[in-house]
Design a protein around this nucleic acid. Structure first.
Lengths: 211, 211
DNA sequence: CTCATTGTAGAGCGATCGCTCAATAAGTTG
DNA sequence: CAACTTATTGAGCGATCGCTCTACAATGAG
């Protein structure tokens, strides 16, 4: 047992992960529908038959791309910050500043794949739009949870509204992704991140945020 | 002179404005590329030949739709608020709250057409994406100008950064449009608008905003 | 009336879309 | 070696894309 099992039949002639990365870049840059099978096979260096054998149809390839993206450094920074930072304030401040640095980074397409890859979609691909929307709304729930516990722990004042705050950060992050796609650079986005954090509640008395 | 000129030839059998409105709804809901000529002609109640005679090709139809949108109540509220409100603070507060009410309004597709109609686009339609991006960036400049004069007039403290503030409001508005498309309702967006206005600078001393 | 002008209707153009399939190649197994 | 299994190749499927063209209808001008 535990035997890996010798691979049978003709071995693959391409690197599956590398091909997936190329597909990710295309979907990330152009979005789901605007990326054609022709462009995909060319970028991945394979023929349609190989693509369908290795990844299934375009839909499932895209979903696998999204999962790979979520596991990548660019896609995972939000969850990591929420896990590592001791306070909600520090977590969201870090998230916004990392987004400001990552979204316009020229080493990959601008903005967040999850936010922008399926905003315009035909009826027959509505499933893909719903798939990404659910992902975004799930992320919103994670924000909500973190802020609710922050309130229970006393970091947030009782008068604060965790749900509105979660929506606010989701809005700022999605807006920053859009602005990065419109050409905003890291410096501009960092200034925006600072502005956005100024809305953190309970700054009234002494402006001493739970640092 | 001044003669309107009697229309020659066979008169049009459809209402051009009504047809344009139908095209707007489709582009607004699905985006530029995801809306097909087939859907357009069906929704507008005309045949392809009539569409091309009256509006030119798909590109120019879309551009005319965008101009009509900008003149509509849904598309023009930002400019109106900037013109009517005496202070920048009141203008942006009004803009955010109107966006919160308008973007999720069920009487039309969610969000802002200018923001979401061409985020994913193939290479051959890149011109359309650039067209909308330029529109968004022009709007950002309007924000910047308004905030710069607010600073010159003393409404904004000297330490404030009008450029960052303009980018911040652009981010919040674009994010609110996205959230509306993801299903956020007017109540939720209004709470977010309140949160966002709390970032307005120079709230330090007495929290008395220039109301 | 005839003529010129404009609009409509419907068929269908070439190109591209996502995708499939038969033939062949390249491995392991016995 | 032959048998089996899987991958690659390249042609090409039906459907849809944006768009055009021809035949005909409806108006005003003369």
């Amino acid at each position: 047992m535990g035997q890996t099992g010798a691979p049978r039949g003709r071995p693959r002639t391409f690197d599956r992960d590398a091909a997936l990365t190329q597909a990710m870049r295309l979907f990330w840059e152009r979005g789901y529908e605007a990326t054609s099978l022709n462009e995909l096979t060319e970028a991945m260096g394979i023929r349609p038959g190989s693509l369908y054998a290795a990844f299934g149809d375009k839909r499932s390839l895209f979903k696998e791309v999204v999962h790979a993206y979520a596991r990548s450094s660019v896609g995972a920074f939000i969850g990591i910050a929420l896990k590592e930072e001791p306070t909600a304030f520090r977590a969201f401040a870090r998230i916004l500043h990392q987004a400001a640095a990552i979204y316009p980074d020229p080493s990959h397409p601008a903005g967040c794949l999850t936010i922008s890859a399926a905003t315009n979609v035909t009826v027959q691909d509505a499933e893909i739009a719903v798939f990404l929307r659910d992902l975004r709304n799930a992320n919103l729930m994670v924000f909500h949870d973190r802020l609710r516990t922050a309130q229970q722990e006393g970091e947030l004042p009782p008068g604060a509204d965790p749900r509105a705050l979660a929506g606010y950060f989701a809005v700022v992050i999605q807006g920053m992704s859009q602005r990065a796609r419109d050409g905003a650079d890291a410096t501009e986005l960092a200034a925006i991140a600072d502005m956005a954090m100024a809305a953190w509640p309970e700054a009234e008395p002494g402006r001493s945020s739970p640092n």
